[in-house]
């Protein structure tokens, strides 16, 4: 069968592969190359070596964005996963209305980041103006917590679904055995349920981690980095470096930042996957 299929390889593989080359491989390779160049379009690139990288690390707005992104990511990963797991535990208790609750908690996930950001901007600004605090455009703290609340609101439902699927796969005998042995609810949770759903935890932490680092739409729509780039995350900082100002010096800097960002995201995902995978138990 392999032989017959091989003859048909142009038909099966080429269309997707061609689009993949156009949409990913060429832009990726070009991006890598251009990070060592000064340019305004792909065609007028001039090799400058690692100058862009030196400027990127010296750029305070970039290191600030990195700091903001990391502190946002840590808090949002904890908040989202703790609440999502809590909800999943409640919704697997066979309470009345479980399906309705699940439906409601999942819903914000389907709405795009731009629209969500706008909705929360209206709500948060209204609350701030009622309590007499400066609005989001001038209020760094509110911007930070606003982003946490907004993304938690969006992603809790998604992670909850994954945790529910994990909890439903915990064998009933195991829970019965724990009960007979006299384990209380908290011991059962810590010693039986959580070890058994480690693979769900791996996935959810991985997803929230990469989502936090790659966050763009919500950041743009909620605060757009205001005030004074203080709530600007890495993705938005790179975007602004590319497109906010005209001039030959910016695009190369932006591309170098993008490469650093890319390496950072890949490295963090790999480390995280290794770390939590090692805690998974075989069923």
């Amino acid at each position: 069968m392999e032989k017959a299929l091989k003859k048909y390889s142009p038909l099966f593989v080429i269309p997707t592969f061609a689009a993949f080359v156009i949409g990913f491989i060429i832009p990726f390779a070009e991006g890598l190359y251009l990070s060592f160049c000064q340019f305004t379009t792909v065609k007028n690139a001039k090799w400058v070596g690692i100058a862009n990288y030196q400027r990127a690390f010296a750029d305070e707005s970039f290191t600030n964005a990195l700091g903001f992104t990391v502190s946002y990511a840590v808090v949002s990963i904890v908040v989202i996963n703790v609440i999502a797991l809590g909800l999943a535990l409640l919704l697997t208790r066979k309470l009345k209305g479980t399906n309705i609750f699940r439906t409601i908690f999942f819903m914000p996930n389907l709405i795009g980041g731009i629209v969500l950001g706008y909705i929360w901007q209206i709500l948060i600004n209204c609350v701030l103006s009622i309590v007499g605090e400066p609005l989001l455009a001038l209020n760094e703290t509110a911007g930070y917590w606003g982003l946490i609340i907004l993304t938690a609101w969006q992603q809790i439902g998604y992670m909850m679904i994954i945790y529910i699927a994990g909890l439903q796969n915990v064998p009933g005998e195991l829970l019965e055995a724990a009960e007979i042995d006299g384990a209380n609810a908290i011991t059962t949770l810590l010693k039986v349920k959580i070890p058994m759903i480690m693979s769900s935890i791996t996935i959810c932490v991985f997803l929230t981690l990469t989502n936090s680092f790659k966050l763009f739409d919500q950041n743009l729509a909620l605060t757009a980095g205001d005030p004074k780039h203080m709530t600007e995350m890495l993705a938005l900082n790179i975007y602004n470096t590319f497109y906010a100002r005209a001039g030959a010096q910016w695009k190369g800097l932006g591309q170098a930042k993008a490469v650093i960002f890319c390496i950072l995201v890949i490295a963090i995902s790999m480390i995280q996957l290794k770390a939590t995978r090692s805690k998974e138990v075989q069923q």
Partner: peptide, 17 residues
């Protein structure tokens, strides 16, 4: 691999292509 790479890495070159 393409799933992990952030969009900012390719956004400029992609729009030109």
């Amino acid at each position: 691999f393409s799933m992990v790479v952030p969009f900012q890495m390719v956004m400029f070159t992609l729009s030109q292509t």
